[in-house]
Simulated assay, not measured.
Amino acid sequence: MLKLTMIDSQTKEEKTYTKDMPSARQLRRALEIQAQAEQGEMEGAAMLDEMVTYVVGVFGDQFSYDDFLDNIPSDKAFETIADVLMQVTGQKKGNDGSKKKAVKAQK
């Protein structure tokens, strides 16, 4: 099961999103994104846009692109995206410790 925890930047309310087994198509896209990032094929804002859009899709649009951008601290954005990619590719289960990191980052 995939997990992603966000803390609303306005209310400080914590919300955990979950998704059962990702599809093979989502796995394929995760591998493409990882390869593009490693090879430097995407840069800056375009890379962030692509990755955030992917994460939102993986979680079945339970939250929006803007929700992600507004509620994930800037210094945790790529770490959070990487965590989701690792979960999809089976390199990590759940976002272990991400809740604690999210709470700490919001302080």
Rank of each mutant, 00 (worst) to 15 (best):
L31E: 12
F78Q: 07
E50C: 14
F59A: 05
S98R: 10
D8I: 01
L85Y: 05
M86G: 15
K15Y: 00
I72P: 00
S74W: 01
T53M: 10
L31V: 06
G57H: 02
S64A: 06
F78P: 00
Q26S: 11
F78W: 13
Y65F: 14
E43S: 13
P22E: 10
A77P: 00
S23C: 09
E43P: 03
Q26Y: 10
Q91D: 15
K92M: 14
E43K: 11
K107A: 14
D75Q: 09
E14Y: 01
M21R: 14
S98I: 03
A24Y: 06
K100N: 09
Q87G: 13
E13K: 08
N95P: 04
T53K: 08
E50Y: 12
K12S: 04
Y65L: 06
D66L: 02
M51T: 15
G57E: 10
A24C: 05
Q26A: 12
A77V: 13
T53L: 13
K19W: 02
G97M: 13
A45P: 00
I81S: 02
L27R: 10
Q34G: 02
F59K: 04
K15E: 03
Q34R: 07
L31N: 05
V52G: 05
D8Y: 04
K19Q: 08
V84M: 07
L2T: 09
M21K: 15
L48H: 07
E38K: 13
M21Q: 14
E41W: 07
F78D: 04
P22A: 09
M6F: 00
K100T: 10
D61M: 03
K93P: 03
G94K: 11
E32Q: 12
Q87P: 15
S74G: 07
G94F: 13
A45G: 09
E32H: 09
I81T: 01
A77C: 09
T16W: 01
K93Y: 15
T53C: 06
K104R: 15
T89R: 13
A82C: 08
D83A: 15
V52P: 04
E14T: 05
T53H: 03
